[in-house]
């Protein structure tokens, strides 16, 4: 990773904002771009570390993934599931129409 490759510009910010589903006002895009570049520049220090023989560490937990038995222990709580919904109808969540 070289710092230069990872420098973001406004089109990159647009792309990342789109992937993140974040509406970013035009006026704040330049500042955001600068912030992201500063942060990415800062984290680029990791380039110095030789990690060629190092395995990635995803979790510090020492134990194995616990398994649960196959029993129906939950559900039938439509009222709780829908309680905080901004819009619902007839037991469904409602969203603006999706075109497939």
């Amino acid at each position: 990773m070289s710092k230069k490759e990872s420098i973001v510009d406004i089109p990159t910010v647009n792309k990342i904002a789109r992937l993140s589903r974040l509406n970013i006002p035009e006026a704040s895009k330049q500042n955001l771009t600068n912030d992201l570049n500063n942060i990415l520049g800062f984290v680029a220090q990791l380039d110095e570390v030789n990690t060629s023989d190092v395995k990635p560490l995803a979790s510090v937990t020492g134990h194995k993934l616990p398994l649960r038995s196959d029993k129906v222990t939950d559900g039938n709580i439509e009222d709780l599931v829908l309680k905080n919904a901004p819009e619902s109808s007839g037991g469904f969540f409602v969203v603006p129409k999706v075109i497939e």
Binding site: R68, D70, K71, V72, T73, D74, G75, N76, I77, E78, L80, V81, L82, G90, G91, F92, F93
Partner: peptide
């Protein structure tokens, strides 16, 4: 063909009322 879902205890059966086989994890 499990009774409950992969990561939650809600029923995996087919054809129930809307949002009834849903746990807070699924939501």
């Amino acid at each position: 063909s499990s009774k409950s879902k992969l990561f939650s205890g809600a029923s995996a059966s087919f054809g129930a009322e809307a949002n009834s086989n849903v746990s807070l994890v699924d939501a």
